[in-house]
Amino acid sequence: MNSLPQWLKKRITINEAFFDTRKTLSELSINTVCESGRCPNISECFSSGSVTFMILGRTCTRSCGFCSVKKTGLPETVDTQEPERIADCIKRLGIKYAVVTSVTRDDLDDGGSGQFVKTVEAIRRAVEDVTVELLIPDLAGDPDPIRSVALSGADVIGHNIETIKRLYPFIRKEADYYRSLGVLRSIKEIDPRVLTKSAILAGLGETKEELLEVMMDLRRVGCDILAVGQYLSPSKENYPVDRFVPPEEFEFYKEAGLDMGFRNVSAAPFVRSSYHAEEEYDKCHAAAFS
């Protein structure tokens, strides 16, 4: 009855910290992509106090096939208190490496970039010595919002290319492959000290060669950090899994990526953009200013 391959078994870690993390998030009315995205790593990360904050509400203006975040109904009004609550949560949970993502907000003039900037500012005011990673939407490729996020003071800025160009009409139909590459390029051009990051979902129907091409396109725009993980369909309404990529193939992508010049590559079935983000950052931090 279990059709998932043996290597796709996630070990559940539930301890006091898991419930403490959930309680703190709930008390502060903070959303996480961990919960909305039904990430299978949630028990592991929450049990070690690691979360990926999701700002700008829980309703997304896109309809990407791989994602379980709510897509229907009107997006929420932007919560002006949200940045402070996120900063408060980081303080309470003793987080040293903060990851903040959002839903896409095509309805907002600035695409939500202002809220990202305010969140980074609030974090910096509240906590000393915290590394901040943002995972941003494409901001419609608009130069001004992209610029303000690039100059926000974040240490790492990620934007996920997700898949190959050929599958965009099915997987990310409101997005544009080249627009997304452009976002990464722009950030690097505006501030080369910011580390840029992207992630690819494997097993959506791409071939090995096609995935390698995406990796090369990412390197061409100066992307520093790459994460490659197995696509898992979050619900029956989502796009189906085409293939379960074996661990050896993920190893192959990792080696290929390092050869291509990524500062760090994490590639394994359960890897996600922010999975073990701090450890992955530490691995390339030494090289950052070389």
Partner: peptide, 15 residues
């Protein structure tokens, strides 16, 4: 015990 949801298979250790 091994648990299965739509998205993943989980191994739960004894508490």
């Amino acid at each position: 015990v091994e648990l299965v949801t739509d998205k993943a298979t989980f191994n739960m250790p004894s508490p």
